[in-house]
Design a protein around this nucleic acid. Sequence first.
DNA 1: TCCGACAACCGTCAATTGCC
DNA 2: GGCAATTGACGGTTGTCGGA
Length: 296
Amino acid sequence: MSKCGRKKYMRTNVRQMTTETVESQQDRSVTHSVAEHSSAHMQTGQISVPTLAQVATIAETDDSAESEVIDSHKRREILSRRPSYRKILNELSSDVPGIPKIEEEKSEEEGTPPNIATMAVPTSIYQTSTGQYIAIAQGGAIQISNPGSDGVQGLQALTMTNSGAPPPGATIVQYAAQSADGTQQFFVPGSQVVVQAATGDMPTYQIRAPTTALPQGVVMAASPGSLHSPQQLAEEATRKRELRLMKNREAAKECRRRKKEYVKCLESRVAVLEVQNKKLIEELETLKDICSPKTD
DNA sequence: TCCGACAACCGTCAATTGCC
DNA sequence: GGCAATTGACGGTTGTCGGA
């Protein structure tokens, strides 16, 4: 039995159960539902964070008498998909100046945050026979990423100075694991090659005219231009699927990173509020001492 | 040393949202 | 409406830790 088939079967049942659980819990305190939801995920090591809507509902329905009169709108709110962690955190940040905002991804025209200054949004991603990823971004930037490393540290980027807009459906990247002179070559549009001129900690790349025909072992990935046969269509479908999986893989990593940051910010906010609360209590006690006459 | 429990992380699927 | 982004949920893998 395939892994995916089994997963899909189980996921369907679990998803139904999850919905039923949330709905049935409307009759009880929503506080319980969130707690149970979290503890259930603790068994699998996953973090569960209630949505803002859930948090609001918890506060509103803490009184068990009111929990029975949750209208359909609130139920829909609970069941609805949460906004992104970035939005939630930025909403919190607008209320509390101490909380840093998660940077929005900016286009190249708007400038990039310092920590991802060398990254560009890839538009075409290819995997070489050695497992490396090559991404051609808008503007002609070529990014070479090693497997096993994260998206930033393993990234090598260069920008083509003579890059123009490639013709639609004609982007071709050809990768040779090793050329005759021991360097890596990447063939790019415009009948040019990107040659690895130096290796090591700081590899450099040069754009040259190709000197030889395609070396042996070259891996070619071409966009659909004239696919006709069923085999070509199948290969194209496979390529699209792998591209989608790779993008979703990276998106999941980024989502988890944001989620961790979101949780960290919430925890730090709790710490700050606890300190403030303690100070206010102490201040209140002090004022009480001042205002109330001494009895002894 | 072995084993089980647990946490953390990952890849994947599917549902949802938001933008064009 | 289509598509990309986002994220919940799942199963799998790996590393750590305490007890036998």
